[in-house]
C-alpha cells in the first residue's frame, strides 16, 4: 500500500504508529510474523531494516540487530522476498530502511524496480543528506518508491524547508541530536520549534523518531506530529524471542505503547 493511502486510511489512533523492525533478526519467518502482528495492531507503515554492518545513524540496539541478521546471512534479495509475501496481505505500507552503500552496490535502478515489484512503498536511506540524494530520489520516483527525508534538530530552518520539499511519503523528524535508540530521552523542544514552519512547507505527514519509546512520549507529541516512529524500544522488547513468542511480545509492546 502506498504511504499516501495508508495515512489517509489510518484509524483514529493518534498519532499514527510507524514501527521499525530489522529483517532477519533472528530469522525472516519471525520478522514476517512480527510485521503481520504490527499490521493487525494498527501500524500505518512499517519500516523494515535491511541489515548493514556500518550503520552510522543507528545506536547499539539496531546496530546489534543488524549484526545478528548479517550473521545469519540475510541479503537484500531475502528482504525483498519477505516484502513480496507481506505486502499483498497487510493494510500497512512497507518502507525499507538501509544505508547507501549496499543499495549503490545492488544498483539504485535495480533496487527501485525490485522493491516496487515486491510491493514496498518507500525507502529511507539515512546517510544521504539532501545534496547527495537527487539521483536516488529521481530514480525511486520513477518506480513510485517514496523517499522520506530526515530533518534533524541541527537543521537550519531554510534547509528544513528544502528537505520537506524533497521528501515524499512522509517527513521524518529526528527528535534529538545523536543516533537511534531508547537509551537517552527524546527531546521534543526542537521538534516543536520546527513543526509550524514544516507544516507551512509541506502537506506530508510529519513523523517523529529517535528515542520515542514509551507511552508518555506518544501522548506528549500527539498534538504536534502525525506519526511516531518506534524502533529500538520494540527491538529491545523482542530480544531473545522468535516465532509465537515474538508475536506475543509485539502485541504486549503495542498495547503498552498506546495505553
Amino acid at each position: 500500500m502506498r504511504l499516501v493511502d495508508a495515512f489517509a486510511a489510518r484509524s483514529k489512533r493518534r498519532p499514527a504508529f510507524v514501527p521499525y523492525v530489522m529483517a532477519g533478526d533472528p530469522d525472516l519467518a519471525t520478522t514476517e510474523a512480527v510485521v503481520r502482528a504490527l499490521a493487525r495492531n494498527g501500524a500505518t507503515a512499517i519500516e523494515l531494516g535491511i541489515p548493514y554492518g556500518d550503520p552510522l545513524a543507528d545506536g547499539p540496539t539496531i546496530a546489534a540487530a543488524g549484526a545478528r541478521a548479517l550473521a545469519s546471512g540475510i541479503t537484500i534479495e531475502d528482504v525483498l522476498g519477505s516484502v513480496a509475501r507481506l505486502a499483498p496481505e497487510i493494510p500497512s505500507s512497507i518502507v525499507l530502511f538501509t544505508y547507501f552503500n549496499p543499495l549503490d552496490r545492488y544498483g539504485l535502478e535495480r533496487f527501485a524496480r525490485d522493491a516496487a515489484r515486491a510491493g514496498a512503498a518507500g525507502a529511507i536511506v539515512p546517510d544521504i543528506a539532501l545534496e547527495e540524494s537527487e539521483e536516488l530520489r529521481a530514480i525511486f520516483a520513477l518506480h513510485c518508491i517514496d523517499v522520506p527525508m530526515l530533518v534533524a534538530p541541527s537543521t537550519p530552518p531554510e534547509r528544513a524547508v528544502k528537505i520537506a520539499a524533497a521528501s515524499s511519503g512522509f517527513l521524518y523528524i529526528v527528535s534529538r541530536l545523536g543516533v537511534t535508540g531508547a537509551a537517552s530521552e527524546p527531546d521534543f523542544a526542537p521538534m516543536r520549534r520546527q513543526v509550524a514552519a514544516l507544516r507551512a512547507a509541506t502537506d506530508l505527514p510529519l513523523a517523529l523518531g529517535f528515542g520515542v519509546s514509551r507511552p508518555e512520549h506518544v501522548r506528549a507529541v500527539a498534538d504536534d506530529v502525525d506519526a511516531v516512529i518506534v524502533g529500538s524500544a520494540l527491538i529491545d522488547a523482542l530480544a531473545g524471542t522468535s516465532g509465537d513468542d515474538a508475536v506475543a511480545a509485539t502485541e504486549r509492546f503495542v498495547s503498552g505503547l498506546f495505553a
Binding site: 552510522l56 545513524a57 547507501f100 539515512p126 546517510d127 544521504i128 543528506a129 539532501l130 545534496e131 547527495e132 527525508m149 530526515l150 530533518v151 534533524a152 534538530p153 541541527s154 537543521t155 537550519p156 534547509r159 528537505i163 529526528v174 541530536l177 545523536g178 543516533v179
Partner: peptide, 21 residues
C-alpha cells in the same frame, strides 16, 4: 563545491551532521 575530487569524495552522512560539517 560539494567536496568531490573528480568522482570521489562528497558528504554521505546523516542529516544531523550536515550543519556541523
Amino acid at each position: 563545491a560539494r567536496g568531490y575530487f573528480g568522482a570521489f569524495g562528497g558528504r554521505f552522512v546523516p542529516e544531523v551532521l550536515v550543519a556541523a560539517l
